[in-house]
């Protein structure tokens, strides 16, 4: 299954589920990454990590390994 970390620059996706085994999963949910939400990869840092996504009307930067636990439809 595709994850948010695999989105290309400017690509959109809809969240299917969050991998609950990741230690950051609670915080990822709390900042608004929840199933059903559409996200877009807005920026990639100069060092390829972290990534910035649009979610629920704001921009959230998260690390690649954290974006990896956001599974897309």
């Amino acid at each position: 299954m595709k994850t948010a970390a695999e989105l290309k620059f400017g690509e959109r996706g809809v969240i299917n589920s969050i991998d609950g085994s990741h230690p950051s999963s609670r915080r990822i949910l709390e900042v608004g990454f929840t199933p059903g939400q559409e996200i877009e990869l807005l920026s990639i840092s100069a060092f390829n990590d972290p990534l910035a996504f649009s979610v629920r009307g704001t921009i959230i930067a998260i690390r690649k390994n954290e974006a990896d636990c956001i599974k897309l439809l």
């Binding site: 230690p23 950051s24 915080r27 990822i28 900042v31 972290p50 910035a52 704001t58 921009i59 959230i60 930067a61 998260i62 690390r63 954290e66």
Partner: peptide, 11 residues
């Protein structure tokens, strides 16, 4: 500890 970076980029 778990190293994490989750930060809102404000308007």
């Amino acid at each position: 500890d778990n190293s994490s970076f989750i930060l809102e980029l404000p308007t």
